[in-house]
Design a protein around this nucleic acid. Structure first.
Lengths: 162, 162
DNA sequence: GTTAATTACATGCGTACGCATATAATCGGC
DNA sequence: GCCGATTATATGCGTACGCATGTAATTAAC
């Protein structure tokens, strides 16, 4: 039984395509993460530490914890304590939000910004080396395009059956 | 200064393309992992637990720890203890390797296989739902193709300057 | 205007993780 | 056939994580 008896012939194939694609994507993520982790560019930061510093550097305005949380794959308490450690190390500053006393504005210190830049340059070079060795320019653009589509929330999707 | 003075005009653009693509890919990974983690399909397993059960199910032959380690993003001690827990729960069996007394062959128990199938069906459906809602068939094939290229080791790459 | 519900973040607690290292078995040179 | 090097897995230890819950501030209901 190589073809299952389904209503539309394309249906099962589409499920299979999606699962194969996801498995391959996970494999790529694993392989590249391992490679980048092994790079000698991190200056004592974990990749998650760097992710937070990078996010703070990208947005000039001070960010709240919840904003960071949307970008980082980490629980809210986990992120709270990760930021704690970065504050203790002097890389991130907490300052009060005048309009909301619950929230704390987070921003990079000078040292945090300096480290983010240093690590970012080296890591960016490593990322570029790995990806450009494997994909053409057109493929890189395609990867970005597909990734953006995959990042969409359900709310952002056009409805199938309105 | 919008264009940096580099030797070849395409060089900086290519680095930028690669970094943008990687950032987008990380975002997609985060978004989808969050979505799948929140699914109510895991039957008490972590996604890493499932990853190990799935890998064991995929390869009918009993696997060694090191073989699993290549597929799972986890340190060797971490994987060792993860397997410990799965053995304690009765989902995985360790049996001795007759030809190598250091290694232990790992295989699914009947219960482990049953749970993997149950969870796999539900998770596979969720993966398909998420991906097919965002990508066309052609795009799914493309994603798999790009991911496979990204999974290649340096050794597998054609040399740039032999 | 008071109070319930919600939001934003922090903390207690048990578990899982990574790093360094240990243990045990196999392999290679001679 | 013996011994150093290597491979395969396990363990000690300190740290980081997620879940449940707590605390404080804001919004909403009336």
């Amino acid at each position: 039984m190589t073809t299952a008896p389904v209503s539309r012939a394309s249906s099962r194939g589409r499920t299979r395509l999606a699962n194969d694609a996801w498995e391959a994507a996970l494999g790529a993520h694993t392989a590249l993460m391992r490679r980048f982790t092994e790079d000698d560019v991190w200056a004592g930061l974990s990749m998650r530490d760097y992710d937070v510093l990078y996010t703070l550097a990208k947005c000039d305005a001070p960010q709240r914890l919840g904003d960071l949380g949307r970008h980082v794959l980490l629980s809210q308490p986990g992120l709270s304590r990760l930021v704690d450690r970065l504050v203790d190390r002097g890389l991130v500053a907490r300052c009060a939000d005048p309009s909301d006393a619950r929230a704390a504005h987070l921003s990079l210190t000078d040292e945090g910004r300096a480290i983010q830049r240093r690590v970012g340059r080296a890591h960016g070079a490593s990322v570029a080396a790995a990806l450009t060795a494997r994909l053409s320019d057109e493929e890189l653009v395609l990867l970005e395009s597909l990734s953006r589509k995959l990042s969409l929330t359900d709310d952002d999707l056009p409805e199938e059956t309105p």
